[in-house]
Computed example of a mutant assay.
Amino acid sequence: MTTVQPIIVTPDLDRLQAFYERLLGAVEVIRFPGDGPTFFVNLKLGDSELGLVNEAATDLSAPQRILLSVRVDDVDGLLEQAGAAGGRVLGPSTDMPWGERVAHIHDPDGNMVNLTQPLQESAG
């Protein structure tokens, strides 16, 4: 079995962890090391995992090349909460022709996050 786990390197692990916990309900499952300054935290989000690595020298001004796409139950509801959780909303949500409602946000480090929700088939 092959799986992929995104890992985000951040200069402020506590801030970024709080964002994903507050906005998406992430739950910490592993912290390394268990005592002393934390290097790595593994978060569980539904059936997925997201790793956070604490690295003080991370350059947040470097161009982003990875997009984190997260399927959620209510894009519009989370979009309203993103700013209060520490993120930045980049615009309104949009219904896409491939059958998803999508909203674009930045997490507190400026990483691009797409919130996606399947559109319901209209009865007709």
Rank of each mutant, 00 (worst) to 15 (best):
T10F: 14
A123M: 09
L45D: 01
E100F: 12
G46K: 09
P97N: 14
A84K: 07
R31M: 12
P33S: 08
L115M: 09
E28V: 15
S48W: 09
V41A: 13
R71F: 13
S69G: 06
R88E: 01
E80V: 14
V75R: 03
G124H: 12
L24H: 04
G86F: 02
L119H: 15
V41N: 07
L43C: 04
V4I: 13
P6L: 11
D47A: 15
S93H: 08
D76L: 09
G87Y: 06
D76K: 07
I105G: 03
N114C: 07
W98K: 12
D12Y: 13
N54Y: 01
D14I: 04
G77T: 10
V113E: 04
A84G: 08
D109P: 05
G87D: 01
H106W: 01
E21D: 05
T94Q: 05
R22H: 14
G46P: 03
S69P: 00
L50M: 03
A56K: 06
L24Y: 07
S61M: 08
G34T: 10
L67P: 00
E121G: 14
R101L: 05
P118C: 13
G87R: 01
F32R: 13
A82I: 01
G110V: 03
I8N: 11
L45I: 03
S122A: 14
F40V: 09
I105N: 02
F32E: 03
E49V: 15
V75H: 05
E80T: 13
L52K: 11
G34M: 05
F32P: 00
D35Q: 10
S69V: 06
V113K: 10
L45C: 02
V9T: 15
S69C: 05
D107M: 02
G91D: 00
V70L: 10
L60M: 09
I66V: 15
A62I: 06
P11W: 06
M1G: 15
P33H: 08
L119M: 15
R101G: 07
L67H: 06
P11A: 12
V102H: 02
T38R: 06
A85K: 03
M1F: 12
P92V: 15
G124Q: 10
Q120C: 10
V41W: 03
Q117C: 12
A82E: 00
R101M: 04
S122G: 14
L79A: 07
N114R: 07
P33C: 08
V53E: 00
S69M: 08
T3K: 07
L52D: 01
T38E: 02
N54G: 05
G99H: 11
A62N: 10
P37Y: 02
R101F: 07
N111A: 14
L45E: 01
